[in-house]
Design a protein around this nucleic acid. Sequence first.
DNA 1: ATATAAAGTTAGATTAGTCTAACAATTTTA
DNA 2: TAAAATTGTTAGACTAATCTAACTTTATAT
Lengths: 218, 218
Amino acid sequence: MTLKTKENYLKAMYMLAEEEGVISLSGLGKRLGVSKPTVNSMVKQFQHEGWVEYQKYKPIELTSQGKKEAALVIRRHRLVEMFLVEKMEFGWEEVHDIAEEMEHVEAEILFDRMNDMLGNPAFDPHGSPIPDKNGNVLSRPYLSLSEMRRGDRVVVKALRDDNKEFLDYLNGRHIRLEVEMLVEQIETFDKSMTISIEKEPSLNLSKEVCDRLLVERL
Amino acid sequence: MTLKTKENYLKAMYMLAEEEGVISLSGLGKRLGVSKPTVNSMVKQFQHEGWVEYQKYKPIELTSQGKKEAALVIRRHRLVEMFLVEKMEFGWEEVHDIAEEMEHVEAEILFDRMNDMLGNPAFDPHGSPIPDKNGNVLSRPYLSLSEMRRGDRVVVKALRDDNKEFLDYLNGRHIRLEVEMLVEQIETFDKSMTISIEKEPSLNLSKEVCDRLLVERL
DNA sequence: ATATAAAGTTAGATTAGTCTAACAATTTTA
DNA sequence: TAAAATTGTTAGACTAATCTAACTTTATAT
Ligand SMILES: [Mn+2]
Ligand SMILES: [Mn+2]
Ligand SMILES: [Mn+2]
Ligand SMILES: [Mn+2]
């Protein structure tokens, strides 16, 4: 099996486990853009390599080895994103696709150097935690903006999504990490929120947007 | 055909044409570490794509399109090497293998940014010219040190080889680009040279080393 | 509880890039 | 110039990663 294939499958499995709580064949297929039979046969190989535990018709589970290797791919991805933003003046909306390619570079020394130049950063430009060299992540329990109530004061801490369109949307409204927001109104019909940011006009954010903004209550 | 495969074959062909004057199937096979039948079948595909001109038993020639695309791969390789040395504090002996991987990244904007940060550099850390965005290279006609005569004063301008072992050898002797040397003696038996660098003890360099040092006469 | 839908599986085919074995053409050497 | 060496070609096979079609198992909804 090719290194890139291995890394892409492991990463997808790791993120599915985080996001959905479970790794299903069809979820994995959708995520990777391949058919179910493809995933099925790949998962058998991953099991054979000791990266997943799996029985017919049961959900897939990463072994601790699989988890660790997946976390290291994610580490490289997020280090690259951070390097591009901090050291090469890219916008946070530009870096995901580049990182998607660079995460597969085999020269460990490259990522170590990035890490050093960045001062061993704990978070990437989107607020996601960067796993350490042993694959350990300390994830903070942020809440999504849509769980807040009227009158809550919050700080934006992370995003649930790297997506360029979403980031362009946020850029257009001056929503960045560490921005403080006040929840002014919640529309009962569609759960959209009216929020205000200091010194800016109030904004209306749809439920889809609020779901993707991870915040900390002040 | 996969982008990486295409780029590796084009680059190998381009460099063979430069170094040997001709692109042979076996040369290409050796360079790429694949068998002759493999190269044979790939070259047919390259012809079909319009990247090479070729007839049975005749040497392969790159079309101008092929040459241009090859030069752009080499551009990326050398920009990466330069970026790693100038902006990330890597040594010139460390960067080739990393560049070998990064040259295949598809995000053009990444290389444009490197180019900007480096001020549109004309040469890489080993003195090789960096092709411009149109694939044009202006190559200077350096001579190899082994062609010099006793008493010649020269400046090291480039290397014929990226090889880590060779670069480690040069590091150990404080031979860098722009260093000035005087040819003190040439041994008729093995063509080895005794040379001196200002403020350093004289050195004896084998023919293999002299062949790989490209210099300009003062 | 049954029918329907969703998820998972199997079988068999395909494509890119590679190989070895056998042979043919060309070039070099004696 | 004939033999030997090198270079190039053909045929046929293999592996990784993918697909579609047909089928089975499990979950969901009426
Ligand atoms: Mn990302
Ligand atoms: Mn990110
Ligand atoms: Mn190089
Ligand atoms: Mn170089």
